[in-house]
Design a binder for these strands. Structure first.
Lengths: 245, 245
DNA sequence: AATGATGGTGTATAATCGACACATAAAATT
DNA sequence: AATTTTATGTGTCGATTATACACCATCATT
């Protein structure tokens, strides 16, 4: 069972695995699945392509990796160029490499997902002239393997939302309990029980209830809450607390 | 809020995101985190490099993506070339792109993890002359960002083992309950209660107890079990069953 | 016959989850 | 002024799930 430690790899194997041809170089792209929430529905930001291939079709926002940046930076740059936004939560998802995924040329694409509070970030300027928010279940079918990317992104978003406090990235700083519940119902695509939800959220003890009501939402008005990031951080650090909804 | 649908992207943005330079092409590699289990300990397979850079240091097994294959195929090929094994469980993990991660040249690397039952797969032949299994916590420090890759792989393995029946990939076809428990204790890096573990496993109702004992393990011998893949598949399909340990 | 090492089994308590209904506030309507 | 409308806010109980825990059986060795 034990294997000699000092022997060398054969030259054959060395060559097979580690030599490369210029022609084996590939184009690396990033594609961003941008989720947004407008206090009611979960949405996704798409653009209509004005360039070939597949000009005129809807697609995710993407771009090519440049030689002086890493993938996270490329994803951030692509998002910023098209929306003007910075400081947005982003996370790498998966790398797609089917041979014919882009009919034009061999392209390997790394998908990222981003979370945006739609109402707090008004995009203006030229960047988004051909971009549009779609309700998740009303989005058109997309080019290449972008539909598959979205499915994987939704799955990841669901998992993350249950185990990390990332939902707050999709809400304004102050939000009502109902908005938070709407968000989770949109993400999970199912109704939740109001009292159970609130009890659970409160038991996490990471929200602060303000002495301030959102009066736009009903006659009575609803108390506003904020997520206490610092308190959350400390709980994780000191008590090994983990966010579970 | 609503954005015009028909407008075009500006030429500037189009150019910025979608034109590319030959020099932006990059080398794409795959690196494999190969986990093994020998009925007692969780192990990882490493090789001693006999080529530059970092010749003589331990590293993950890796290779370059070729132009006629996708990443899954590249990972499978790399594993097969070095171990002779095929039909091994593999899963893509994460893509690493720090500018200076490989001091030699700009390389983007996609990590994969693989699961192998050490005892059932005897490697022989030249492939593994400089390869060796290491206990997880006795592994040497590795080149580049390979240590980081391993940490992420362990985290993923833990999550997967709790929610998918992938542990069986690390065991021989027939195994004892104690071996299964040892496996989970190795993966989770903590002791589990014997009775609770067995009760939980049995309640999943996807193992078959054989009329056959492993007599090597004690005087009394221990019953052998097999994972009933077909039964598992049906439960998932028909009852929406999900594996949770 | 005694010893030693590992296998195999069930119950009781605590914690968590999930179902469930009514009163309150305040604006709008009559 | 009274009534209607609409969304807010709040607690309990039963079911399920998770956790803690101890003893006897088997059989090879001595």
């Amino acid at each position: 069972m034990e294997i000699p430690k000092e022997a060398d790899l054969s030259t054959d194997i060395n060559r097979q695995l580690n030599f490369y041809q210029k022609e084996d170089q590939a184009l690396l792209a990033v594609d961003c699945i941008i989720f947004g929430f407008d206090k009611t529905n979960l949405k996704i930001l798409l653009i209509k392509r004005n360039f070939e291939p597949e000009k005129g079709k809807w697609s995710l926002i993407g771009g090519f990796l440049k030689k002086n940046e890493n993938l996270d930076q490329a994803a951030t740059r692509v998002l910023n160029t098209l929306t003007g936004l910075s400081d947005i939560y982003m996370e790498q998802l998966y790398t797609y490499s089917k041979l014919d995924r882009d009919p034009g040329q061999r392209t390997i694409s790394v998908s990222y997902f981003a979370l945006i509070d739609v109402d707090s970030h008004q995009f203006d300027g030229i960047q988004i002239e051909s971009a549009r928010w779609f309700d998740l279940n009303e989005a058109p079918s997309l080019i290449f393997d972008h539909d598959e990317m979205i499915q994987k992104a939704i799955a990841r978003l669901r998992r993350r939302a249950m185990t990390m406090p990332i939902g707050f990235e999709l809400l304004p700083e102050k939000f009502t309990m109902r908005q938070l519940q709407n968000l989770y119902e949109s993400i999970l695509n199912k109704k939740l029980d109001k009292r159970n939800f609130i009890n659970k959220v409160n038991s996490l003890d990471v929200l602060v209830k303000l002495n301030e009501k959102d009066m736009t939402v009903s006659r009575k008005g609803a108390y506003l809450f904020v997520f206490d990031k610092e308190k959350y951080r400390k709980k994780v650090e000191e008590d090994g607390f983990s966010f579970k909804l």
